[in-house]
Design a protein around this nucleic acid. Structure first.
Lengths: 337, 337
DNA sequence: TTGTAAGCGTTATCAC
DNA sequence: GTGATAACGCTTACAA
């Protein structure tokens, strides 16, 4: 079923059918209705590819996600879901590309094959091949996260450095003198993953400022790693009385290690950090933490991208989220040890 | 940059360029190299839409996911990830459509707009508009989950009924006489969601067969709901000594409610069910459960779809997964109460 | 071994 | 108010 067939059945030309579909020029009520009837009964819908070819735009967004082999974190998933939802609201489809590096065939297809009008990139590294690549092609894109020098690009990000700094200050205010940062995985940090580095920077700054003893450890993105990590931490550094973390997936394991050590939160040990809200709320006791607003961020990313596509290379815009730290019940005065 | 431009720069015709790209007819080594050089230096890649238009296929799969507004469960996410990954391995892109009903614009675009060569559907209901719709259009599709009468369609599914039956038998063998089923949310079940109904059927069958007292409750897909659900269960039916569940997201909450009631697992209370492996392993104590093989299922779904696209409407194939119940540590002899 | 040209299903420019 | 017709960028008979 194509537009020509509709035209034939309605006894008009193809252009007329096209115009009733787009409304881009007036069509007499009589023929309009006749054509519409034929369209309805044959539930015809224009071929999206032909339209894309002619119009030069695909009404599709590309979303580059980390290779699925490494299980996505809840936060990543939250971004994916909110991007897809926001795109659907403005009638845009989303093409997924699971690609780590720049050489990925999937990434290539999407970017240079002109399958999309713009791209949203996740899991940005401080130095990121994909953004340099995208910059060269001129394809509009926005990143969730940002590179070391994001000038000239559109992005949304969480202010991990500032947030972790505030977490540490909060702990210091409560009298903690020995604090630790539970970061993301060592590989991620080694690869120059932005949040990992910025969290570390924020942590170091606050520790220095408040003259604390600070320790930072990397930790895999899962419960088992969190458990091992806190076990070791407790064994090797018994003076530590509080941790700040950016690793939500490790939280259940951290909890278990604390239990096993007979430590009760927050009486004996405080925990805080920056994680997705439901992780904070599901923690026992509920976690004092900055809640990453994934939904808003995904929505905003789509909005920035749409603007950027429409405007064609105008001023890059960005938005740094610094959500308040919700005081819940996982932090308390430092124990007298 | 298009194929004509490449041809011009290399001093050949467009068809020759096309043929070095596709390899569908021999090209002399000399011109082949010359053309390839031009292609490389201008990093040209054919316009995917033009190609799709001409070839009549898009090399793209559609994946219909539940509307993202309701947070996806880990299991759903696991399917998405494995489908995307499996598709990427065979150079297929994945277009996401967050649609619940049949009327969704996004669903319409993808299905009737011929944006994809085939569709994978998730969250299948016993009576599902989308599959009847898809059946009519003739677009190849496979479902993850199955309708009440799935004959003639391709699908992969988990044998919830059989698995829950086996869970209950296991509990009965341990001496439990009062058991409960913690199902998915009431809305889902009311909407005719397959796994909910089949789990219930399997539960009822086993309870009857073993002459137990069985109770089934619906429970929202999150920790808070799980907590509330088990609290009520314990209060209203103190005789219950074991539950089987298909609601992994509720697990952490169920755990908390048990803790709060001072019940230790498995001494005082047994839990089993069918969930994704990492949920089972992260449970304390590790959950005796059938592990849903999401990765294999997603991969298999893609494979079935690819076959179905290639074969054009041949025999529908399907695969019902019935993974073994991994004996871990959450079930034990019924307590003498 | 290579080139010419038709056509995939649209949209949009020009005529009438 | 409506109809031819030329693109959009590609693939693939058919010719040479």
């Amino acid at each position: 079923m194509n537009i020509g067939e509709i035209a034939r059945r309605a006894g008009v030309s193809r252009s007329t059918v096209s115009y009733v579909l787009s409304g881009k020029r007036p069509v007499s009520e009589a023929t309009r209705r006749r054509i519409q009837a034929v369209i309805d009964e044959s539930d015809y819908r224009p071929n999206a590819n032909a339209r894309a070819l002619k119009e030069g735009r695909t009404r599709t967004l590309g979303l580059v996600i980390p290779p699925a082999s490494q299980r996505l974190t809840d936060m990543q998933l939250g971004f994916v879901a909110s991007v897809v939802e926001a795109a659907a609201r403005v009638d845009l489809d989303v093409l997924l590309s699971p690609s780590g590096g720049d050489h990925d065939r999937s990434f290539e297809r999407i970017v240079t094959g002109r399958r999309v009008d713009g791209v949203i990139l996740m899991e940005i590294r401080l130095e990121d091949d994909r953004v340099t690549r995208l910059r060269r092609t001129g394809l509009p894109f926005v990143t969730i996260g940002r590179t070391a020098r994001p000038g000239g690009t559109s992005w949304v990000d969480v202010d991990y450095a500032g947030l972790i700094t505030r977490c540490v200050h909060h702990l210091a205010d409560l009298g903690h003198r020995n604090v630790a940062l539970v970061n993301r995985s060592a590989e991620l940090v080694a690869a120059g993953y932005g949040p990992g580095h910025r969290a570390l920077a924020g942590f170091a700054a606050a520790v220095r400022e408040r003259d604390l003893t600070g320790l930072d450890v990397c930790c895999g993105d899962d419960a088992a790693a969190g458990e091992a990590c806190v076990e070791e931490l407790l064994a090797a550094h018994p003076a530590v009385t509080a941790v700040a973390t950016v690793n939500e997936a490790a939280l259940p394991g951290m909890r278990r290690a604390l239990d096993a050590a007979g430590l009760v939160v927050p009486r004996d040990f405080s925990i805080t950090g920056v994680v997705a809200r439901h992780w904070a709320e599901d923690f026992r006791p509920p976690l004092t933490a900055a809640d990453v607003p994934m939904l808003e961020m995904g929505t905003e990313a789509v909005s920035l991208l749409v603007q950027s596509i429409a405007a064609g290379e105008t001023a890059a815009r960005h938005r740094l989220y610094s959500p308040p730290i919700s005081l819940r019940a996982s932090t308390g005065p430092a124990p007298a040890r």
